[in-house]
Design a protein around this nucleic acid. Structure first.
Ligand code: ZN
Ligand code: ZN
Ligand code: ZN
Ligand code: ZN
Lengths: 152, 152
DNA sequence: CAGTTAAGGTTACAACATATCATCAACGCG
DNA sequence: CGCGTTGATGATATGTTGTAACCTTAACTG
């Protein structure tokens, strides 16, 4: 495997790996959780928790409070099903739930699309740099704002 | 100059370079701007715009609305006097206003302290990675959450 | 002087996030 | 069965972060 890779999973396959990953962690895959994951996974761009709340409310024909959405998104983030995009205060489905990386996201300032790339070498360099100064890195945040190929 | 460096400026010196950088950009260094810069520069941790508003209000004995603070912080960020820490929704003074880098910040989840490091090689690798996919990088965001040496 | 610009004030509102307590279903067990 | 426990979600309130719209003032310009 090269240090740089790129991978995707769509629709049912992604849903299934997400469910498997969550259940492997001893958590339940409930209807509510499935609905929230579906909404996040349907988007190529990061979605805000409030957007998720609106969409899930529509899908279920019943108001779902942001509060409940945050609870579940936090659970997803903790279990690597979803990643938080710090520079957008928003969330995006992890295209490879079982597999843990210090992910790098390229976020288009024009269309909002986020591309997920992993480069373990860069991530390791960042962690090493932090360690050199006596800092114990827990979670590198590497996001690149710019313009995607389509919007260029 | 090594690719990795680390530098600081304090008190009057920092204030002076900030002023010089802003004026070189054709902007004014007003009392309000000086007061806001002073508040941000006095902290080793990222401060929220609302914290700045409170502190500046105290310092001037007159309420300053967050709105005004945001206006000026945005100007500072645009001119590289202050950096925004995306993962904290907060701001920190740039320790080297004249000098442009893709800065890397190490933010302690325990005490909140942020350390500013520059490593042009890592930053360049991140930009190159983005470019390889056809993405035009404008602004890499590289922040590391973790625990500082003091809190360890 | 009138016209223009830049800085900042005032008010209102929108977007993002958390805290607290209540409800309900599922499960284990005497 | 009745009962206590746990985990998931609901309801409501509140806190924090960020923007929009419009106004006032001071300075500079012709
Ligand atoms: Zn991967
Ligand atoms: Zn785009
Ligand atoms: Zn530097
Ligand atoms: Zn610390």
């Amino acid at each position: 495997m090269s240090a740089i890779h790129h991978h995707h999973q769509h629709g049912v396959a992604l849903h299934d790996s997400a469910r498997a990953a969550l259940e492997a962690a001893g958590e339940q895959w409930t209807d509510m959780r499935a609905a929230i994951f579906a909404v996040v996974a349907a988007e190529e761009r990061p979605v805000s928790a409030y957007d998720v709340a609106d969409k899930v409310s529509q899908a279920r024909g019943k108001r779902v409070a942001p509060n409940s959405v945050y609870r579940i998104l936090d659970l997803f983030v903790a279990n690597n099903l979803v990643r938080r995009i710090e520079s957008a205060n928003a969330f995006i489905a992890n295209s490879h739930p079982g597999c843990v990386h210090d992910c790098i996201f390229l976020i288009c300032d024009s269309c909002g699309q986020a591309t997920h790339v992993d480069d373990d070498k860069i991530a390791q360099n960042v962690r090493n740099l932090a360690s050199q100064t006596g800092f114990a890195p827990a979670q590198p945040v590497i996001e690149v704002r710019g313009t995607c190929a389509d919007c260029d």
